[in-house]
Amino acid sequence: MSATPDILCIGSVLWDIIGRSAIVMRQGSDVPGRITRLPGGVAMNIAMTLARLGLRPAVLTAVGRDAAGDELVAACDRLGVETGFAYRSDDLPTDQYMAVEGANGLIAAVADAHSLEAAGDKILRPLADGTLGSAGDPWRGLIALDGNLTVQLLAEVAASPLFAGADLRVAPASPGKAERLVPLMGHPGATLYVNLEEAGLIAREVFADAGAAAEGLLARGAARVLVTDGGRACAEGTRGAGVIVDAPPKVMVTRVTGAGDTFMAAHIVAERRGADRRAALAAAIRAAATYVSGEMPS
């Protein structure tokens, strides 16, 4: 294992199998395109971007001791992501995610993160056994946490002394898992990164735009939130400091899977480098726009 990581990324690390076509698609479409297999998962996407931007991330996740898991660990190491703290399971297969994207965006996706869910709190052992922290001396640095963990485990994280001193950055894995983040709304050190749909699901309300969503989540107890809305204006809201809004540049969209994770990672790095609220939001928006345009490597 390397020196103490700059940030811990907790959640899904798996194989992304993505089919992309430059053609507009609908249900039942059968079109030419390209299929790629790359390391992915919310925690991994964030970690890869952090590594590209100069940080030393480590992942806390579950990876099988199968051929796919060995390949995945080797790929992570090449990308500068520390896997030495990950839980390697002898009886759980390595997770995977499959998506189809057309010129009109994401068509469909299936996330098979059952092994991560089955591993449960085993992935958090390094934070409890003294390797990275303990209940009496918790980790006090940055943690990126994704919503692929179970509802029960996320609720435990929200109340656990192991996370009491952390700068906790939280993202849902998908709109379907957004409501899992509700227990973390009250964590004083938590920053939630959500899109407009996810914000509405958490708040159980329909919001007109990202600014309104940020206001709504703060009113419901969140300490800090960032809300994206595709190519429309994004917002950052902080309790006691209000909401700020900025709009992304117009770009040609060539991919969407991983854009939110890139936004989150770029925002974290900008703040770590001393950027204020407006500069950090602008940096995150630029990074996400560059990513969806295809100019940033996967």
Rank of each mutant, 00 (worst) to 15 (best):
R78L: 13
M252T: 14
Q96V: 03
L116E: 00
A75M: 09
R20I: 00
Q96P: 01
A190I: 02
P172E: 03
S293R: 05
G176Y: 01
A159W: 02
V63H: 09
I202H: 02
A119P: 07
G216T: 04
A68L: 13
I46Q: 11
L149N: 12
R37G: 04
V81R: 00
V100P: 00
A259E: 02
A43L: 05
G64A: 07
V194F: 01
L154S: 09
V73S: 09
A86Q: 03
A223Y: 04
R286S: 15
A223T: 15
A62C: 15
A203W: 02
A43I: 03
A22H: 10
P175L: 04
L124G: 10
K250F: 03
V151Y: 10
I285L: 11
A108G: 12
R125N: 09
A111G: 09
M25R: 09
V110D: 09
V182L: 12
V73I: 14
L8Y: 08
A159P: 01
M25N: 04
M252V: 13
F85R: 13
M44E: 10
L153C: 03
A67W: 05
V73L: 15
P93L: 00
E82F: 02
T191R: 15
L8D: 01
T131R: 15
E197N: 08
V170R: 00
G130V: 11
P138K: 05
T94Y: 09
M25F: 00
G165V: 08
K122W: 08
R20Y: 05
G211D: 02
R273A: 12
A51Q: 08
L217G: 08
A199N: 00
P297N: 13
R278H: 15
P249L: 11
R224V: 00
G274W: 14
H114V: 05
P138L: 07
V245S: 12
V24Y: 04
A233Q: 13
D6N: 12
A62G: 09
Y97V: 01
G165Q: 15
R88S: 10
D77I: 12
L79M: 14
R169D: 09
G40M: 03
G221D: 04
M252Y: 05
G231D: 13
R272M: 14
Y291G: 06
E197P: 00
R180P: 01
S115Q: 07
L145Y: 01
L92K: 03
L55P: 04
F263K: 06
V256S: 13
